[in-house]
């Protein structure tokens, strides 16, 4: 009995301490954001801010130059929501087509879709840029948002897998009740794939929120910057010692990610464990 307890304590000590060690940089970042800028590195060994100040947040929120951090947050939310709507509509329609409809060329297009999953963005990056430049879409959200309305292979695949688990008898019953194909999608499938749509939404949120390369390529005026871009700007404008404001806004940029994670944890964990979505 005694030995079993000791074993248990040792296990929790090891696993717990390792977890703390792993997360220490994040804890340090958060605590440092409450320190005076000049003390962050002078007292790097201590987690306790002395004195504890909030002015970093006020300063960071006021931002650089003409725009406050609220502008960047708002821009990013608009970006995320537009992409999210695109993914939900397009991916569910496309996935329904692949999973439920029989048509000539289905396996061909499905294979193509799987192949695009593997295609590095770098290969299409430059021509896409040129196309969007020709369309006069530079310095707008359009190049970042419009493609989302044509599906995303990862989420299409995820939804196809999910739809395949729904019994076909439901579709057949609906046909007997007079539903057409769109009706089956709308009334039968859509309500049943809500969990998979939740996973899609969460990962769309993460990927869009964190996206840096896209905004770096397409957004030039600070009024349109996203949070990632703003942090990047903070870093490159890094005046001698304004660490505090930069740390504070880094923390702010992580808050939505944490909130979404803690609310929808189950979907995140299931999404990764079952389909290998990268977090």
């Amino acid at each position: 009995m005694q030995a079993k307890y000791i074993k248990k304590i040792i296990y929790h000590l090891i696993v717990g301490c390792f977890a703390i060690l792993l997360l220490y940089p994040v804890i340090w970042l958060i605590m440092s954001s409450f320190k005076q800028s000049e003390k962050i590195f002078a007292t790097a060994e201590s987690l306790i801010p002395q004195p504890f100040i909030l002015s970093n947040y006020a300063q960071g929120w006021a931002g650089f130059g003409d725009y406050g951090f609220d502008t960047y947050i708002l821009n990013t939310f608009i970006f995320v929501i537009l992409v999210l709507i695109g993914h939900l509509i397009s991916c569910s329609l496309i996935a329904f087509g692949f999973a439920r409809l029989k048509f000539a060329g289905r396996s061909f297009w499905f294979a193509i879709m799987i192949l695009t999953l593997m295609l590095p963005y770098e290969v299409v990056m430059i021509p896409q840029y040129i196309i969007f430049a020709q369309l006069d879409w530079l310095n707008s959200l359009k190049p970042l948002v419009v493609p989302a309305y044509f599906g995303h292979p990862f989420f299409i695949f995820l939804l196809v897998q999910f739809i395949r688990t729904i019994p076909r008898e439901l579709d057949e019953a609906a046909i007997i009740d007079g539903c057409n194909t769109f009706g089956i999608y709308r009334r039968i499938i859509l309500p049943l794939i809500v969990p998979a749509l939740a996973t899609t939404s969460i990962f769309t949120f993460y990927w869009t929120w964190d996206n840096l390369l896209g905004p770096v390529l397409y957004l030039n005026s600070p009024s349109k910057y996203t949070v990632s871009m703003a942090l990047n700007m903070f870093l490159s404008n890094e005046t001698v010692s304004n660490w505090g404001a930069m740390f504070a806004m880094s923390v702010v940029s992580l808050i939505p990610v944490f909130i979404i994670f803690f609310i929808f944890q189950r979907y995140v964990v299931d999404g990764i464990s079952t389909s290998g979505l990268k977090g």
Partner: peptide, 25 residues
């Protein structure tokens, strides 16, 4: 017709944002 109606967005997006850029690249 139904099949291509549903996966149509994918095909259009694939042509416009993937295959044409691949050839151009």
């Amino acid at each position: 017709l139904w099949g291509y109606l549903f996966i149509g967005p994918f095909i259009i997006g694939f042509l416009a944002f993937t295959i044409i850029p691949i050839i151009a690249s």
